[in-house]
């Protein structure tokens, strides 16, 4: 089986499995909904403050919901037994990592799209088609970076006692640069402007750096689970 075919099979299998189980999907949806509700109560929907902070509200919602999805990336594998089985298979470890990144990204996007819709609804927002395109592009690139890093860190912490808390402790500080850039870019899009090259450069640098790091380091992260461990 070629690496690409193995990747495709793993992505389809992982995504379908999660969509059938639905428990993580429901948890992510609930997290997004509750966060939006909290912000809707905290900030009046027709205020100047909302215009200044709407990008931040959107990204906080996506971050908290997506973290639930990242947390399940390996924890849902029955304390790593499923991953152990995968590591015994002839599929290369970078392929397993890239497949998990792709399936988790699909999973996160499954929640991010309706969350964005609810955000627009709750906060009475309307944007032009061009702005919507920029927001979608920014969200896709940012969530991709989030998932590349999150899956790698999840593979490190899921087998540690209290790993769910540790994951958040180590993930959030590393995400600050990309999320701050995404908030800035989204805010410009809401105001009718396009994200400039610096935003795109920073987000892409983050994406490529952590995708490369995941490709090289995933093998070390899961070493004690595999046959060489």
């Amino acid at each position: 089986m070629t690496s690409f075919r193995a990747w495709r099979v793993l992505v389809a299998w992982d995504f379908t499995r999660e969509m059938r189980r639905k428990n993580t999907l429901v948890a992510m949806g609930m997290m997004a909904l509750v966060t939006l509700f909290v912000f809707a109560f905290a900030i009046p929907t027709s205020s100047v403050e909302l215009d200044q902070s709407r990008a931040g509200i959107l990204w906080t919602t996506l971050l908290l919901a997506a973290t639930v999805g990242i947390d399940r990336a390996f924890r849902a594998d029955g304390e790593g037994r499923l991953l152990e089985g995968l590591l015994l298979s002839p599929v290369s470890r970078p392929t397993i990592y890239h497949a998990r990144v792709a399936s988790t990204l699909l999973f996160v996007l499954t929640i991010a799209v309706p969350s964005f819709g609810l955000f627009m609804l709750f906060f009475n927002q309307s944007v032009s088609a061009a702005a919507l395109g920029w927001i979608a592009l920014t969200a896709l690139a940012t969530l991709f970076g989030f998932v590349t890093l999150g899956v790698l860190l999840s593979s490190l912490t899921f087998s540690v006692r209290g790993g769910d808390v540790l994951l958040r402790v180590v993930l959030f500080p590393l995400l600050v640069p990309i999320f701050a850039t995404a908030v800035d870019a989204t805010s410009r899009a809401f105001d009718g402007g396009a994200p400039d090259a610096r935003h795109a450069g920073l987000i892409l640098a983050f994406d490529l750096t952590f995708l490369g790091a995941g490709h090289l380091l995933f093998d070390h992260g899961v070493k004690d689970l595999g046959p060489q461990g």
């Binding site: 983050f206 070390h220 004690d224």
Partner: peptide, 21 residues
Amino acid sequence: ARICAIYGILALLAYMPVKYA
């Protein structure tokens, strides 16, 4: 040792874009 090593590597990689930003 292994997990902290990986995190230490990721931390500097995160630091670099911030520096250039």
